[in-house]
């Protein structure tokens, strides 16, 4: 039996005050925060390097795209072998979901900067550091923010899947447990909570994305 909206909300209200639930949220938030930091950080670095060096980028792009299309769940046993059952495996699994789109978007953003901007920088006698800060960065920013947004959603997906299949902690684990014990009330409440958090954060990032996309958000 599915629970109705009122009952679900009431149940979720109680759940929010529940210590075990709070612990689950904390576990997921911790794993997600670390995974996101790794996905965003390494995705940005990889994307910037590949974008700056055209030949490397052209070689790497199809490889990255192919890697990205591999269903990551099939790699999970390998990750578990490397990292064991625990936080690091969930972090790694989340990060591999997010890193490739961030890298691909960043690379495309860097490559897409019109060459005339760099000629303009030289004509205004800007050095490499000033060019990177005042031209390259703001010019790339809309593309990079789009990548970060997609990376955010996919990393969250990865962390939750990781928790569902091989973890004793976190919201993903609670979902699986609710499924196993046929606790529909808990299942629906968890789903509602995850949807609310994910869409809330997604909407914030989308608003940021649109803001920088419209104007860019470079320094004055």
């Amino acid at each position: 039996m599915l629970t109705g909206p009122v009952e679900t909300l009431t149940y979720l209200g109680g759940l929010l005050a529940d210590h075990e639930f709070q612990l689950g949220v904390w576990e997921t938030a911790r794993a997600f925060g670390l995974a996101l930091a790794i996905a965003w950080g390494s995705g940005l670095v990889i994307g910037l390097l590949l974008g700056a060096h055209r030949l490397t980028g052209e070689v790497a792009e199809p490889i990255l795209t192919a890697l990205y299309s591999v269903p990551k769940i099939t790699l999970y046993p390998v990750i578990l072998l490397f990292f064991g059952l625990g936080l690091s495996a969930r972090v790694a699994f989340g990060a591999i979901h997010g890193v490739v789109p961030v890298a691909l978007f960043t690379m495309a953003a860097v490559r897409g900067v019109p060459p005339v901007y760099f000629r303009t920088a030289r004509s205004l006698r800007l050095g490499p550091v000033a060019t990177a800060r005042h031209i390259l960065l703001p010019a790339c920013l809309p593309g990079i923010v789009s990548g970060l947004r997609i990376g955010f959603s996919l990393t969250l997906l990865g962390v939750l899947i990781g928790e569902m299949f091989a973890s004793q902690r976190g919201l993903g684990h609670m979902v699986i447990r609710a499924m196993e014990t046929n606790d529909v009330r808990l299942l629906i409440a968890l789903a509602l909570f995850l949807v609310a958090v994910a869409t809330g954060a997604g909407a914030l990032l989308l608003a940021l994305d649109r803001h920088v996309g419209r104007r860019g958000a470079g320094p004055r």
Partner: peptide, 9 residues
């Protein structure tokens, strides 16, 4: 020749 105005400014 190309438009080199910076769209973010």
């Amino acid at each position: 020749q190309e438009d080199s105005s910076f769209p973010w400014l």
